[in-house]
Design a binder for these strands. Sequence first.
DNA 1: TTATCTGTTATATTGATTGTATAACAGATA
DNA 2: TATCTGTTATACAATCAATATAACAGATAA
Lengths: 131, 131
Amino acid sequence: MIISLDLQSESPLYIQLRNKIIEGIASKQLLPGEALPSVRTMAADLGVNMHTINKAYQLLKQDGFIHIHRQKGVVINPDSMPELNKEYLKNLTESLQPLISEAICRGMKVEEFLKISKELYHQLLTGGDQK
Amino acid sequence: MIISLDLQSESPLYIQLRNKIIEGIASKQLLPGEALPSVRTMAADLGVNMHTINKAYQLLKQDGFIHIHRQKGVVINPDSMPELNKEYLKNLTESLQPLISEAICRGMKVEEFLKISKELYHQLLTGGDQK
DNA sequence: TTATCTGTTATATTGATTGTATAACAGATA
DNA sequence: TATCTGTTATACAATCAATATAACAGATAA
């Protein structure tokens, strides 16, 4: 899976990386049990510092998306994915709230918002069908 | 309209304020032409610095949500709201992408995601019907 | 006229976040 | 033994978030 970071983006590099990997899992470009590059390799590939990669990996580990073995390396969680628990749902709602509020202000109808979300959902599921 | 900020939140105060005002417009708690407190008054009300308020107002002005007259003060844009233009739609998509990706990973079906969005949309429209 | 209100601008300071740069460590493996 | 893992510790620079004062121009109300 090819990953690139946007150095011009306002969102931090380690957040971008976290999201790209989650996106990879969602689209099955990254499969359960699949190995990820070591922090040093990934850092070299992306042209950023090792600690930036480590920060992203720690976030993913904390939520249960990946497993980290001190010697074996990093793999996509082979057994399960994090749950749809209350904390996550609260977080999701709080993230959606400002997006939907602004959409309403700009005159977007609920059907239009749902259409965009639905299309995005299916698009992410297949991920453009790249390897 | 009552506004409160969360000092513990990871999102900046001026972003929180921006979002609260947009939420107020969406729910019609803030109406076109309605005046907002001056930067100093709002700062005193919320217990934060004047410049924090000013930063939020500048963002809102830049997008066209409010008008600022150097002497008259700040009012909700009486004539129109910002459009559903390409730039905004691109921005919306980029914001939704990581949320939907994570939802997919956690096993949320598209129907469930759309249901949450739809309910949130209508909930924000009425805003709990407070003044 | 004077005092007070508006947004605006400038400057300085503090603290946290982001990202980089090195270095070292323990354990497994080739 | 050399090399690879993740981990940890420091240090540093740049940026961001937020505060603290202060001053200004213009409008308005006393």
